[in-house]
Structure formats: structure tokens, C-alpha cells
Design a protein around this nucleic acid. Structure first.
Length: 895
RNA sequence: GGGGCGGUAGCUCAGCUGGCUAGAGCGCUGCGUUCACAUCGCAGAAGUCGGGGGUUCGAGUCCCUCCCGCCCCACCA
């Protein structure tokens, strides 16, 4: 709270500047986010998806971390020991790339520095820039337990990585082998299947003649999208049953340009329906060909270097050429030899490096892998047994599909930044040492050891995050108390990279699921629906938004725009229009409270409204609050944050401000007596306090600020710790709701007629309500004063019937009552006649539909009783209105 | 080649297990210096819920099919 600020000093406009930061400091000062393991009875835990240390905060982070903070704050107020673990990821390739780029600016490569100095340099970079995103989260209001901040390269987490590697190795689930992997020639490292992003590109399909060896003039035709790989061909395959081609099995072709004699083999892999029926086989550059090679014991000729230039395995003419230059050269040379048959455009999907977008080269390489099948089984079972849930549910299917078809995970990376692979090779014997501790010498022969130069995939530390952050493999109090965590909120694109693997790791190493509920939020897009990205320059900086409108405005806007399972659009060129909803709402809240606080005393806030002489409006708002409270809680419980935001918004703006405050204004001034004032003030104070709490998870700053301004509260009081509103059952009051509903309808009808007839807003007029049902009459009697004020009326009169023969405006209400505004000289008979006719027509339509339903015994027999009853009620109301309207029209007709 | 998502007012989207006289915000039109708020108030116009078929007493909601966007997965050269 701003120092000693009283309600008199609240400005007419909400300005979050100068309010948010001190509140955050106050929370920190009270250690409001910290939960000691020793005292946690009923924990609720979220582990943050650790942002890359290289990352700057973008709207995706804005959304995801808002969601997590909303859940954490909600649970904290509900009395849970809500603990949110923050931290960052070392992001192997991404971070190494950033620093290498920086070096390039100095004309250096990492090799100029050598390994140790390069890694040192990355650490310096991380120390300097690494924590900015964490600082930025604070600006957004994130209530993380900062004492528990972790980094994936921390000592503790590194220990966890080694432990896991060794355990998997000992279990036989980690192996090393020569396989075709995805290779990024720019990053010069292997990638996992997930790290190769497949995108459709228009390429070419080249049809090439391979002359039969020992058979002048005869040839076979193969097709390929990567002609340069022919330099590494070691066979041509046909389907063994293909009548056209099977007779050639056992013969050989002379590989053009290379001159190698290679066999024609029969293999089931070949699709006889496709193309010529002949397939070139390059075991070192294609996963299928690799498999064929295994079956037929073919040579594997790797024709490329790590940078995808052609190596010495190929004829001299091509050596040193980049793969795409070589491709053109090969095609050109084949053409000159008359061996190029056709070239056609061909759309196909090829892998791109997820970090630098370079086209990935499938390449034979010696790498480390994790066998995933055994790990996937329990992870799949957990989902199928309902212990692991996805929101929205459909992602469960995606998860299941991936798990079912999971392939082994290539975990070695030819990088320097990351967790070094804990494997040592003996210089003197064949022994491989895999160890938790760095070994001094070969355990078998005592020879010198060399550690494997590679590091692990960055996700190999991320998949341990929910428990490595809590101290695993040590049996810490944190681990015992806070594991398993509860909710994981993240973007769907890392479902496989991270979420699925965390489930496997949690079950395998920590003995339990890492979380029970996975919340996948949508993508933040720009006004044209494009994904926000640095390269498009269409991103929005959350800090800029916070500066302009405040964190609460941003958070509210994001939450209310992100319905479960949907993307959200924001206009980066018009921040005001994008975030106006939240900004205006914050201002509305500010002013509502400002007004309320000017009208309640300390005593009012501590009075239980139920002990006062409640009037209709009081009973109504208490009832509405009770319902809203339930809706909001239910929505949070089901991860439907947007619904919670929506319900709170509608209640605060549409009910509390638009109706309740308007209705109690004069009462608060004591114009209707002290008892009436007291009831209004106590109700107001109570409901206000309640909805500030409802809003706190989404709008933590303004709710905290205003909460402290309430009478009787001091800076010692905070809203953050709760409690969450739990309105008593007896606040719910259907009768009051019906009464106010009737009042609202009447006010609405009066306003409508006034507006229609262009009656000067300052002119007070009379109204006649004819034949109101008792409940409506009671409501009118209870709130006559409110009705007069809101309808800008001079008087309201109840009557048996609307005056006939008198010029005026008419409306028929849902209750069957009739509204009449005597407006001699204003109301135009023709106009009134057509109004009534139009209304009659509408009612007739509805009525006939309703009758048709009720006359059908199948409806009355089969539909639930309450539905039928509601329909009868509707018909009754429509019939009355219909009769009245007919009467009106007749009256007009006779004039 | 599989799988999924979306198509509801001019725009962005809600509408969950079928009961809706289909909603919100923005925009638009008209009115407004009512003492919390013009970052406001009041009123209004605006929808064949993508097309067609089906199930049902009843369909925006379920099924089939077609059209149009988008996404994910996949080793057809």
C-alpha cells in the first residue's frame, strides 16, 4: 500500500505505476511465496517450465507464467501450501549458438578458444544475462519460491543427470552405436528426431540411369531427391516378387560417376507400385537404406564431412563441395553422360534443425541412445489408467500416439556447452568406464582414460526437472514433501520434447508421476493470426505492456483471451486495443472501490450483513456473489481460467457496479434511515472484500492494494494469503434474484421507451405498471426509490390496467405485467402501433414454437421434468403477453 | 499417408455432459457534464451458428458427408 494513502486520496484514474513494485517487495519481505518443507501440510506444487537462459521474455512466457501464477495464488488462498519452483535451462545448442555468434563478431570461432575457455566464456555470458528473464517474471507478479531457483547446470542437477545416465547404462537402456541420425551441418551435431522439424518444401525428383554392368546399353532407372548421395550408393534394390525387375537380382550396375560395381538385390522394402521399381541404396545416408544394408550386409559409404561437404570417399571432382553444390554438379555431370532421364518438381517433407533451421542431413554416425520402449510402457499405463490427465483432453491422444510409437532417443551432442557424457575410454584396452565420479584410471588395465568429448541433449537434464530441482537423487525433505508436483502448464509444442519424457523419468527414477495434470495453453498470435516470432518482428514485449497498462491489465487480458484449448490473438501494432479490456477493467475496479470506500466506515466492514435488515438489493447481491464465487472456484478447479475471469468480470462490472452500487447510493448517504444505510454498507463491504479476493489470482496487485485500503485493514493484512471466499449457503436467495430480475426488466423497458421516443434524459416522467404479479409488486415496493432514479421517473403507479384512450408508450413484460408511459404529445400513434405489431409478431413466433413443443406428448413424457416445467412457464408468460399485445393492437386499430 | 483442431454478429472469440427467446468484448449508430469511473453511462442495429443429410420430443451442441482454413505426426525412393 502506498504510504498512508486514504481513500480520499485515491485518484480518479488507476495508475499502476508506483503501486505494483512496492507491493511485490512487500510480498517478498514477508516471504509470502516461500514454503518450508518442514511445515507444509497440504502442498500444491508447480515446477516452472524453465525458460532458456538465452531467452528474453515474450508473450508466450507472459501467458504461461500468468496461468501458473493464477493457479498458485488460487491454491495458496484456498489454504494449500502452494509452492512454485522457478529456474532456467542451460539450453545447449541455443546458448552455444548465441555465444558463438558473439565470438564471430570478434572474428573468432570456439575452436580458437578451445574447449575450457569457450565453456568459461559461456558461463560468463550466462552470469551476465542469464537471470534477466527471472527478474522479468517478478515484474509480472509471479509468486515463485525464489529461494528454490534452479539451473539445469547446477551442481545438484548435474549430479542427477549423471546418476540417471549411469543407472540407465547399468540397466542396459543406454547404448552406443552407429546409426543414421539427424545431423545439423551448421551446428555440427547430432539431433534427436524431435529436434528435426519436418516442413514441406518443393524439391525435385531426379530420375537417373544406372547402366547394367557387363551389358552394354542396358540400364535401370532409379529416382532420388538427393542425387549427391549416389556417391555413397552400395546397391540397387528391387522387390523380390516384382515380375518386371526380379530377374535382375544378382546382377550388378556400374555406379555412374563413381565407377563402383554395385549389386542389384531383392528387398521387401521396395514398393513395386512406385516409380520404376528400382531403388538406389545409400546405407550411410538414409535410414531405410541403412536397414536394407543391415539385411544384406552392404558397405556403408559415408560421403560427407560434418559440415556436409563431400569427403574423400567420393571421386575427387566432388570433394570439398557443399552438398547442394555437389548436387548440382552431380546432376550436371549425369546429364552430360546422358544418364539423367527426367527432373520433376516434388513436394516432400524434410527435416530442419529446430535451432538454426538448417536442412538436416540424415547421416551415419556413432552416437549414444536411450532405449525408450521400456520407459514408455509405465508412462502409457499412467495415462490409460487416468492417473495422468491432459487439459484439453485431446492432447492425451497425441501423447498416447507418441508413446506408442516412441523411438530411441539420440542423446549425444557434439557440443561443448552442456553436461559432459560420463563415459571414459581407455587408451590401452577396450574398456569403457561409465561412472558417477570421474575415474582416475582404467579399472581393468590401469591405463589412461579419455572422457567422451560429447555432451548430452539439453532435454536429458530437463526431463528430470520436477525432481532434480527438489534434490534428487538425495532423499531430501523437499523431495519427500513436494514430489510429485501437481500441475504442469506449458505449450503443446514441447509435449514430446519435454512433457512425455518427464513422465517417463518421473516414473522410472522418482517412483511416481512428476505431476497429475498437464495444462496445454494456446499459441499467442498476431492480428493476422501468425505466430509471434523474432524474425517476423511481430512480438509483444510483456514488460512494455506492464509499463503501459500494468501487470494486472496484462494478466487479465491474457487470461480472458485464452479459453482452454484455443489460441489467442493480439495486435502488436496496437497494444492499446489489445489490452484495453484489462486496463479498463482495472480502472473500473479502482473506481468502484474508491466510491465504496468513501461510503463505508470501519464498523461497516466488520458487520456481518446477515445481522442487519437486508433489503432486496442487498439480498440480491449477496446471492449473486455466492453464485459467482462458486462459478469462479469451479472454473479454476477445472483449469478453465478464462471462465473464471469472465464470471468475475461480469459480476463486478455488470452486477456490482451497474446495479448494486447504483441502487444503494442514496441508502449509503442515510437518506433512507440508519438501518437501511447499515445494511447497505455492511453488504457492500462484505461483497467488495469477497470479489477482491476472487480477483486476486488474476489481478494480484490491484486487489492487494485495494484490499489494504478497506476500513480496519493495515499494512499488516494481506490478501495473498487468503482466505478464499466461502459465502454461506444462506446468501443464496432465488427470490431476491427473481425480484431484482423483474426490476431490471422494468428499468430496461423504461429506458428503451425513453430512448426510442427521444425523451430528454433530464425529463422526469411517470410510469404505470399494470397488473404486476405479487412478487413483482413487492420488488417494486422494495426498490421504488431505485426504480425512480434509474428510470429517471417522477412517479410509479400500480394499476389494474393501463389507461386506455390515453396517448403513451407501451411495453409488455415477461411477468405479464404491462408498462405504460403516459406521454401526451410525444408518442406517435403510428409508431406505437408498429412497435406493438413487431413485438406481437415476435411473441407469436415464440409462442407457437412453445405450444408445439408442449402439445407433443413425446416432449412432455420424455424431457426432464424441470425442462418441461420451464417450458410451461415460458408458454404462460408468452400467452399473457400475447393477449395483451393483441388487445393493444386492437386498440390502435380502432383509433 | 495417418491423426487432430477450427469455421457462431463487421472483427476477436465464449457457448463444457443436446433443452437457447444464441452471448461477451471491440467496432458501429443515437443519446448523455445523473456528485466512483468518458479507461464512463444508457439505448440500438447487427447472426439461415460453413453447406447438405441424419439421429432425437428437441441439435450451435451428437453422427455422416462435402467445402474452406490451420496444426501435429509419418522412412515411400
Amino acid at each position: 500500500m502506498s504510504d498512508n494513502l486514504t481513500h480520499h486520496e485515491l485518484s480518479a484514474r488507476y495508475d499502476p505505476t508506483g503501486i505494483e513494485a512496492p507491493i511485490y517487495e512487500r510480498w517478498l519481505g514477508r516471504r509470502a511465496f516461500h514454503v518450508p518443507a518442514e511445515t507444509a501440510q497440504n502442498p500444491y506444487v508447480i515446477a516452472i517450465p524453465p525458460p532458456n537462459v538465452t531467452a528474453a521474455l515474450h508473450m508466450g512466457h507472459g501467458l504461461n507464467n500468468t496461468i501458473q501464477d493464477v493457479l498458485i495464488r488460487y491454491m495458496r488462498m484456498r489454504g494449500r501450501d502452494a509452492m512454485w519452483i522457478p529456474g532456467t535451462d542451460h539450453a545447449g545448442i541455443a546458448t552455444q549458438n548465441v555465444v558463438e555468434r558473439e565470438l564471430a563478431g570478434e572474428g573468432l570461432s570456439r575452436h580458437d578458444l578451445e574447449r575450457d575457455r569457450f565453456v568459461q566464456r559461456v558461463w560468463e555470458w550466462v552470469d551476465q544475462y542469464g537471470s534477466t528473464i527471472i527478474e522479468q517474471l517478478k515484474t509480472m507478479g509471479c509468486s515463485c519460491d525464489w529461494d528454490r531457483t534452479r539451473f539445469t547446470l547446477d551442481d545438484g542437477l548435474s549430479r542427477a543427470v549423471r546418476e540417471v545416465f549411469v543407472r540407465l547404462y547399468e540397466k542396459g537402456l543406454i547404448y552406443r552405436g552407429n546409426y543414421i541420425i539427424n545431423w545439423c551441418p551448421r551446428c555440427r551435431t547430432a539431433l534427436s528426431n524431435e529436434e528435426a522439424e519436418h516442413r514441406e518444401v518443393v524439391g525435385r525428383l531426379y530420375h537417373i540411369r544406372y547402366p547394367l554392368a557387363d551389358e552394354d546399353g542396358q540400364y535401370v532407372v532409379v529416382a532420388t531427391t538427393r542425387p549427391e548421395t549416389m556417391l555413397g550408393d552400395t546397391a540397387v534394390a528391387v522387390h523380390p516378387d516384382d515380375k518386371r525387375t526380379r530377374h535382375l537380382v544378382g546382377r550388378a550396375v556400374a555406379l555412374p560417376l563413381v565407377g563402383r560395381r554395385i549389386a542389384i538385390i531383392g528387398d521387401e522394402y521396395v514398393d513395386p507400385e512406385f516409380g520404376s521399381g528400382f531403388v538406389k541404396v545409400t546405407p550411410a545416408h538414409d535410414p531405410n537404406d541403412f536397414e536394407i544394408g543391415v539385411r544384406h550386409d552392404l558397405r556403408r559409404v559415408n560421403v560427407m564431412n560434418g559440415d556436409a561437404t563431400i569427403n574423400e570417399e567420393a571421386p575427387e571432382a566432388y570433394r570439398g563441395l557443399d552438398r547442394f553444390v555437389a548436387r548440382d554438379r552431380v546432376v550436371e555431370d549425369l546429364d552430360k553422360l546422358g544418364l539423367l532421364v527426367t527432373v520433376e518438381d516434388h513436394v516432400h517433407s524434410i527435416g530442419h534443425c529446430y535451432r538454426c533451421n538448417t536442412i538436416v542431413e540424415p547421416r551415419l554416425s556413432l552416437q549414444w541412445f536411450v532405449s525408450m520402449r521400456p520407459l514408455a510402457e509405465p508412462a502409457l499405463a499412467a495415462y490409460r489408467e487416468g492417473r495422468l490427465r491432459f487439459h484439453p483432453e485431446r492432447f492425451g491422444g497425441t501423447y498416447e500416439h507418441w508413446m506408442t510409437n516412441v523411438r530411441d532417443w539420440c542423446i549425444s551432442r557434439q557440443l561443448w556447452w552442456g553436461h559432459r557424457i560420463p563415459v571414459w575410454y581407455c587408451r590401452d584396452c577396450e574398456e569403457i568406464t561409465v561412472s558417477r565420479e570421474d575415474p582416475a584410471a582404467c579399472g581393468v588395465c590401469g591405463g589412461e582414460l579419455d572422457q567422451d568429448p560429447d555432451v548430452l541433449d539439453t532435454w536429458f537434464s530437463s526431463w528430470l526437472w520436477p525432481f532434480s530441482t527438489l534434490g534428487w537423487p538425495e532423499e531430501t525433505a523437499d523431495l519427500a514433501t513436494f514430489y510429485p508436483t501437481h500441475t504442469l502448464s506449458t505449450a503443446p509444442e514441447i509435449l514430446f520434447f519435454w512433457v512425455a519424457r518427464m513422465v517417463m523419468a518421473g516414473l522410472e527414477f522418482a517412483g511416481d508421476l512428476p505431476f497429475t495434470d498437464v495444462l496445454l495453453h494456446g499459441t499467442v498470435r498476431d492480428a493476422q493470426g501468425r505466430r509471434m516470432s523474432k524474425s517476423l518482428g511481430n512480438g509483444i514485449d510483456p514488460l512494455e505492456v506492464v509499463n503501459l497498462f500494468g501487470a494486472d491489465a496484462m494478466r487479465f487480458t491474457l487470461v480472458s483471451a485464452a479459453a482452454l484449448g484455443t489460441d489467442l490473438q493480439l495486435d502488436h501494432q496496437d497494444l492499446e486495443s489489445s489490452f484495453r479490456v484489462g486496463r479498463n477493467f482495472a480502472n473500473k475496479i479502482w473506481n468502484a472501490v474508491r466510491f465504496a470506500l468513501a461510503n463505508v466506515t470501519e464498523a461497516d466492514g466488520s458487520t456481518d450483513p446477515m445481522t442487519t435488515d437486508l433489503e432486496l438489493a442487498d439480498r440480491w447481491i449477496l446471492s449473486r456473489f455466492a453464485r459467482t464465487s462458486e462459478t469462479v472456484s469451479g472454473a479454476f478447479d477445472r483449469f478453465r481460467l478464462h471462465e473464471a475471469a469472465d464470471a468475475a468480470y461480469q459480476f463486478v462490472w455488470g452486477e456490482f457496479c451497474d446495479w448494486y452500487l447504483e441502487l444503494v447510493k442514496t441508502r449509503l448517504k442515510g437518506e433512507r434511515g440508519e438501518g437501511s444505510r447499515k445494511a447497505a454498507a455492511a453488504t457492500l463491504a462484505s461483497v467488495l472484500d469477497g470479489w477482491l479476493r476472487l480477483l486476486h489470482p488474476i489481478m494480484p496487485f490491484i486487489s492487494e492494494e485495494l484490499y489494504c485500503h478497506q476500513p480496519g485493514r493495515t499494512e499488516e493484512d494481506t490478501i495473498i494469503a487468503g482466505p478464499w471466499p466461502a459465502p454461506p449457503e444462506r446468501w443464496t436467495d432465488p427470490e431476491a434474484e427473481a425480484g431484482l430480475d423483474a426490476l431490471q426488466e422494468i428499468v430496461g423497458a423504461v429506458r428503451n421507451l425513453r430512448s426510442d421516443y427521444g425523451i430528454d434524459p433530464s425529463r422526469r416522467i411517470d410510469v404505470v405498471v399494470a397488473r404486476p404479479p405479487a412478487a413483482v409488486a413487492d420488488a417494486l415496493a422494495a426498490e421504488t426509490e431505485g426504480l425512480l432514479r434509474l428510470g429517471r421517473l417522477e412517479s410509479v403507479r400500480l394499476a389494474e390496467a393501463a389507461p386506455s384512450g390515453e396517448p403513451g408508450a407501451h411495453a409488455v413484460l415477461r411477468s405479464g405485467a404491462e408498462l405504460f408511459l403516459p406521454l401526451a404529445g410525444v408518442v406517435d400513434v403510428d409508431r406505437e402501433r408498429s412497435r406493438v405489431s413487431a413485438e406481437l409478431e415476435r411473441v407469436e413466433g415464440l409462442l407457437s414454437g412453445s405450444r408445439r413443443k408442449l402439445e407433443d406428448p413425446r416432449f412432455t413424457d420424455q424431457a426432464p421434468e424441470e425442462v418441461v416445467e420451464r417450458e410451461r412457464e415460458k408458454r404462460r408468460s408468452l400467452e399473457e403477453r400475447h393477449a395483451l399485445l393483441v388487445q393493444k393492437r386492437t386498440a390502435f386499430g380502432s383509433q
